[in-house]
Amino acid sequence: MPDLGKYGDTVLSAYGVSIALLIVLVGLSLWRGRRVRSALAEVEERAKRNG
């Protein structure tokens, strides 16, 4: 851990907020992607069966 001096809170909060936002963005994208993918597979399966 580097010595951040009196600016420890500043730097850490900036890193924390940014990384959290990035993780939320990636997480939401992946979550929606998975959901849409499985839903599509289901619908396509049904479409094939019904001819």
Partner: peptide, 11 residues
């Protein structure tokens, strides 16, 4: 700027 310069890598 002391340690705050590290914020540049995100900003």
């Amino acid at each position: 700027q002391g340690a705050t310069v590290k914020i540049i890598y995100l900003h």
